[in-house]
Design a protein around this nucleic acid. Structure first.
Length: 928
RNA sequence: GCCCUGGUGGUGGAAUUGGUAGACACGCAGGACUUAAAAUCCUGUGAUCAGCAAUGGUCGUGCGGGUUCAAGUCCCGCCCGGGGCACCA
């Protein structure tokens, strides 16, 4: 019987689908296991072979856990709001929903062919109103919350209002950008608009005038993690800084908890490091410096208060609002000029040139709080307006940036920490003794830091402070294809839409572009006003609705919860379902989401936890980043100025232009199919080809898999040619899951041959399946595999499992094993990896129930016991020969035996051994 | 610059707590079956030296040191690739 994978795979895929084999159930008798893949954005290009890598791994774990008796939740869905569909809509006028639906259908078709055990009944799409209703709901909860720094959790805005009404800001512990000071009486005398303006500073979803990353090309603002090297991550367009009224998320309230939570979760070090850096906790102090001849203070943040006697100048960010007042008249024009130049510099320019030191003296002086010395005040663009207080005390002897600035402008460099050579460079190490520093003299740095802060607090000129690098996340996008923000404006005051009116669905618009006067596309709708009594009403009635939409990360920040109870109409997730599934046990996806999605999701979960809707604070217990599958680009060499192509080895030394060739026209030996190539593009019809040994060879290069490089390999083609089971096992066999690697089809026949061999073991024996008991040898082979596969899956080491299967099958085939006692457990072992062939053979063994719930074989160590061991015998650590000895032999007996061996005597060459090391069951080493 | 990673045959990659380096697979070479091809199966395959051969010697996990009876694995100092952060005071 042939292994006809096409027939088998089709048959079982439709069987599983019809019987809902993988439907997840809240079964109180079973432990739960939740395995999640990062859901894809359904792009028009469809899946390439890189996408399924993580899905295959998670599918193996899911199937494995089902075999182990767990109730497994393994869902899939689509992150279906996003820029490409909208850009396409702008170009073609087609509604993004239509494009998205088509793309999803294509993705689904491709996914289905690979035989994943997803529970499709729980599918979610972020662009589905039934889903984004709850995204909007969460937004409104955030809008209605503030962060209490005393209880360390989010609370309802009503409790804040109550506090204001009774005590004003007295004894208020709240996360807020700038502490406020007013009494209960002040509060009650305020207008509604004034009150609301104050509340905006406390709300976790809030509006504020802030500097944003504006991308003119995309016509929208972007979050920090969406900007890479001053360019937009999607599309690669330039990004500039701009002040705008914007919706934001107060993620900074959760900085410390986001940091602390990392300790409880099982993520890779590199990922945790990325998040730690992004959050960027630094501990130090605020210090106020009096400005000479004015009542003003300049507040700075420093992590090195111990070096305060080393301050020789101060630098403010050019954007710092104090600059205006401080500047002496004679410097006014040069300060203004400097500010203008700094403002014109884009983020990108500023980064491109970190070496150039620039700045301008303001003419003003500060007074040193301890020494009373006058300190010149400068402005410089190395000081950022958005971090700390937008001003620094410069200690050039102990900070490299201050040092460069001091050198450039010939300012003093007083040393206050012993060590280094400050004539050459700043001494930045946090070690050594303090000198030239009055009451700090002689103290080691760490103690001096404490002492300095004590003194600063004692004198009331500053206080201990923890600062974070993390910024609040910009939340509004001037785009169409996203969740509408459920806010309307009554007399200019932002008010929440009533919950019963959710979802606020995207309106119809005549085009997906901004309006002529620069308003977001939603302004084009003629039906975009709101009446609290009626809901959405035509323009002209009610109040105007918010025009911006939510960013791409909104829906993905909580979708993992929705899978637990995807059809619930009452809550984001039902209480019982949430209790049962809790959180994701294993999350698999790319590492590019380290500081975006993964941080935002943790933030929203902590918030939902605070307000009592979920019981787990961390969404993902264990996270694995699968490596990227890279393309193996094929390159033909065209001689410059001609239409002549030279085969790889002939092209050397010639002036040629590399031309990317579609990898599907190149075979595993790098030979190009010339007939196909000639019809690929018009200009190739008449091209001339210089062959080597009758073949045309291409060069190879490893690049990101992309249409642009013609190196995309489609999983459908692999499935068509070799079957889904081969694709699954081959992707795993390629190497460790976390590692990036180029896709190279060369080795796929090895895996395919293995499956054929596996098939033959069950079907090719002339005596059929034998009911006789298996031999010891056969059982040993089987149980070795059982042990290996169990531990490999637990360790996510799938490539080594595949090897173990190959070894096992090679050995059993050599023995011509056809015992049911071996073949039955064997097929269960294979089923997580190659489920179709396993299911087929399972039924062929006479089973009538599906394989997926069959218990996974457990290793019986008794079959693995060895009674002898082939000792490697080494001399001075070099293995020379082997000697098989019973494991029951004592050390002394082994030594006695081995020393008598002819070979031992030969290798000793008459010398007597200094030492003989015997490790039972491991090695014998003789030291000469 | 800082932080994480990784570097092993022609190729992808294996190697518990330090204990036989190169499992498994690809590729390549040779062979069997076949009119032929496909499919399948068998043998060999890190480099190098000696030998007709069986076999044996030497070298070998990015580089240079070190610890150890023994180092791909541990320590110190470098080099290179990949990823992240980047004037964060």
């Amino acid at each position: 019987m042939e292994y006809s994978f096409k027939e088998i795979e089709k048959k079982w895929q439709s069987h599983w689908s019809k019987n809902q084999t993988f439907r997840a159930e809240e079964n109180a008798d079973k432990p739960k296991y939740y395995v999640l893949d990062m859901f894809p954005y359904p792009s028009g290009a469809g899946l390439h072979v890189g996408h399924p890598l993580g899905y295959i791994a998670s599918d193996i774990v899911s199937r494995f856990k089902r075999h182990k008796g767990y109730s497994v939740l393994h869902p899939m869905g689509y992150d279906s709001f996003g820029l490409p569909a909208e850009q396409y809509a702008i170009q073609t006028g087609q509604h993004p929903a239509v494009t998205t639906k088509e793309n999803i259908a294509r993705y689904r078709e491709q996914l289905d062919k690979i035989g994943f055990s997803f529970d499709w009944s729980r599918e979610v799409r972020t662009s589905d109103p039934e889903f984004y209703k709850w995204t909007q709901w969460i937004f409104l909860q955030l809008f209605d919350s503030w962060y209490n720094t005393e209880t360390q959790k989010a609370e309802s805005i009503s409790s804040l209002v109550e506090h204001f009404e009774t005590k004003g800001t007295e004894a208020l512990c709240a996360h807020v950008e700038e502490q406020k000071d007013f009494s209960a009486a002040d509060w009650s005398s305020m207008s509604e608009a004034q009150k609301e303006a104050i509340l905006q500073d406390y709300r976790l979803a809030f509006r504020s005038e802030s500097t944003v990353n504006w991308c003119p090309e995309l016509g929208t603002v972007l979050a920090n993690d969406e900007v890479k090297d001053g360019m937009s991550e999607r599309g690669g367009y330039p990004v500039v800084q701009k002040k705008m009224m914007q919706w934001s998320m107060r993620i900074t309230a959760y900085s410390q908890r986001l940091l602390d939570g990392l300790e409880q979760i099982d993520w890779t070090d590199s990922l945790k490091e990325s998040q730690k850096h992004w959050i960027g906790r630094s501990e130090g102090a605020y210090v106020n410096f009096k400005v000479k001849g004015s009542g003003q203070n300049i507040k700075v943040f420093t992590t090195r208060p111990d070096t305060i006697f080393g301050v020789s100048f101060m630098v403010l960010a050019p954007e710092n609002p104090m600059v205006e007042e401080l500047t002496a008249d004679i410097y006014r024009s040069s300060i203004k000029k400097y500010q203008e130049v700094a403002a014109r510099k884009s983020e990108r320019d500023r980064m491109a040139d970190v070496k150039t030191v620039s700045g301008q003296f303001t003419g003003a002086y500060a007074i040193h709080p301890f020494s009373g010395k006058e300190i010149p005040i400068w402005i410089g663009d190395y000081v950022l307006a958005s971090y700390g207080t937008g001003a620094v005390m410069s200690v050039p002897a102990h900070d490299a940036r201050d040092y460069a600035f001091a050198k450039q402008f010939e300012l003093d460099i007083p040393q206050v920490v012993e060590g280094g050579d400050i004539t050459k460079e700043a001494f930045e190490a946090k070690e050594g003794k303090i000198i030239n520093s009055d009451f700090l003299n002689g103290l080691p740095v760490q103690e001096a830091i404490k002492k300095a802060i004590e003194k600063i607090e004692e004198l009331g000129i500053g206080q201990h402070k923890v600062n974070f690098r993390l910024r609040d996340a910009i939340f509004g996008r001037q785009r169409y294809w996203g969740e509408p923000i459920p806010i309307y404006y009554e007399n200019g005051i932002a008010k929440p839409v009533r919950l019963e009116h959710l979802p606020i669905e995207l309106p119809k618009v005549d085009a997906y572009l901004p309006t002529k006067d620069g308003q977001p596309p939603l302004a084009r709708s003629t039906n975009w006003n709101y009446d609290p009594a009626k809901g959405v009403v035509p323009n002209g009635e009610g109040f105007p609705l918010e025009l911006t939409t939510m960013p791409g990360w909104a829906g993905s920040s909580w979708y993992d919860l929705r899978y637990m109870d995807s059809t619930n109409k009452e809550r984001i997730v039902g209480k019982d379902s949430e209790q049962y599934w809790q959180n994701v046990d294993l999350y698999i996806g790319g590492s590019e989401h380290a500081t975006g999605h993964l941080l935002y999701t943790r933030f929203w979960h902590k918030f939902l936890f605070d307000i009592g809707y979920i019981t787990s604070e961390e969404p993902f217990k264990k996270l694995i980043n699968q490596g990227m599958i890279l393309g193996y680009s094929a390159i033909a060499h065209r001689e410059d100025g001609t239409n002549t192509y030279w085969s790889k080895n002939l092209a050397k030394g010639k002036k040629t232009t590399p031309i990317h060739v579609d990898v599907n026209m190149v075979n595993a030996s790098d030979e190009l199919d010339l007939d196909a190539f000639k019809t690929w593009r018009d200009d190739l019809k008449d091209a001339e080809f210089k062959l080597e040994e009758g073949k045309f060879k291409v060069s190879r290069e490893v690049e990101k898999m992309s249409k642009r490089w013609y190196n995309v390999v489609n999983p459908d083609d692999i499935v068509e040619q070799y079957g889904a089971d081969t694709l699954r096992m081959y992707e795993m066999f390629l190497g460790p899951l976390e590692q990036s690697k180029p896709w190279n089809t060369a080795g796929i026949t090895g895996v395919h041959n293995f499956l054929k061999k596996f098939w033959r073991l069950y079907t090719a024996n002339e005596n059929g399946i034998s009911e006789e008991p298996a031999t010891e040898k056969e059982l040993k082979i089987l149980h070795t595999l059982i042990k290996k596969v169990n531990s490999d899956i637990e360790n996510y080491s799938f490539n080594t499992s595949v090897s173990a299967f190959m070894i096992c099958i090679n050995e059993l085939s050599a023995l011509n094993c056809n015992k049911r006692e071996v073949l039955e457990p064997l097929v269960v072992l294979l089923s997580p990896f190659a489920p179709h062939i396993a299911e087929e053979l399972w039924y062929a063994l006479g089973k009538t129930e599906g394989i997926s719930l069959e218990l996974f074989p457990e290793c019986n160590e008794a079959f693995l016991v060895e009674n002898s061991f082939e000792y490697p015998v080494a001399f001075n650590g070099k293995m020379r020969f082997k000697e098989s000895l019973p494991l029951s032999m004592t050390k002394n007996d082994v030594e006695e035996h081995i020393m008598k061996q002819e070979k031992t005597i030969e290798y000793l060459g008459g010398k007597s051994p200094k030492k003989v090391i015997i490790l039972p069951g491991k090695i014998i080493n003789i030291v000469v």
